[in-house]
Amino acid sequence: MIPLTWDMVVQGLVEAGRILGLLAVGVVVLELFAYFVFHRWLKLKHSLPLMLMLPALVAVAALIIYPFGFNLKLAFSNMSMYRFKNFSVGLSYGIENFLDVFRAPVLQNVTFLKLLLRTVVWTAVNVVFHVLGGLFLAILLNRPLKGKAIYRTLLTIPWAIPQVIAALAWKNEFHYQYGFVNAMLKQLGFAPVQWLSDPRWAFVAVIIVNIWLGIPFMMVILLGGLQSISPEYYDAAQIDGASGWQQFRSITMPLLKPVLIPATVLGVVWTFNNFNVIYLITRGGPMEGTDILVTSLYKAVFEFYRYGFGAAYSTVILIILLLFTWVHLRITRGMGEAEGA
């Protein structure tokens, strides 16, 4: 027998129907209210766009702005597993929570500074390989070539597989005895590696997986960028006798920049925030050896139940991410200007 029962199907449909029904009623009430208040009563100039946005605005306020504020409040509280309902809020709790981020190991072993350093290494190594690998493949695919569509499709597969499946499948393949990685190493005459039980190798393993996952995105984006560069530039450079490298440096790179910069910013943010790959493959272990900031945040909150601390920690991580992105933008823009000058 198939385990899914008729009762479960009905239960799902009823619950989904209830949500959508509530949503519809809510939207109608909201719009009527807005119509009479903003349009009829206050006669606002922007009442129409305001009404168009209002349902989404309320949703964003309830789902993002309020939780964000609530998170800040929790950062100044002593909420924990034992004080889930009756926690108290106060400045001293907040100071404690924020100091705890820096003065003690975030979980059990590893300190904040080390996690930060590891996150920076993780992000930098991944993004550099994503960009180099993606650029290399995009340049090859941008040449006149038979079977280009097939190559392109096959090369996008790591991006197309749901990340959870890819990560779990790779986890199996890093198994010491039965995974293909060690099986191949053995056939090539190397000693098998303790991929998941040695923290250093485990970190290498998750980086390998994430590089594999991330190259196709860069390839596709950069290929789009390359295709928008007119071939006439290259023809002209050819006539002037520019070498391949010179053409790459003074035509391809500058013209690719408008695509490259936003793509690397996205890449940095996504990699910095990547939870699935590390958590599903190593759970941050062994001995917290592969934890980065976001996985340790999740574990502090949902495995160690340190809610107040976690809220403070997440605020610190957000600030670091914003700084990180800002510095990254400064550097990439700065490099572009230096080249242009």
Binding site: Y66, N71, F272, L297, Y298, A311, S314
Partner: peptide, 10 residues
Amino acid sequence: MLPPGMLLLP
């Protein structure tokens, strides 16, 4: 851009 887990707690 928000770190995953940041809004998850609230």
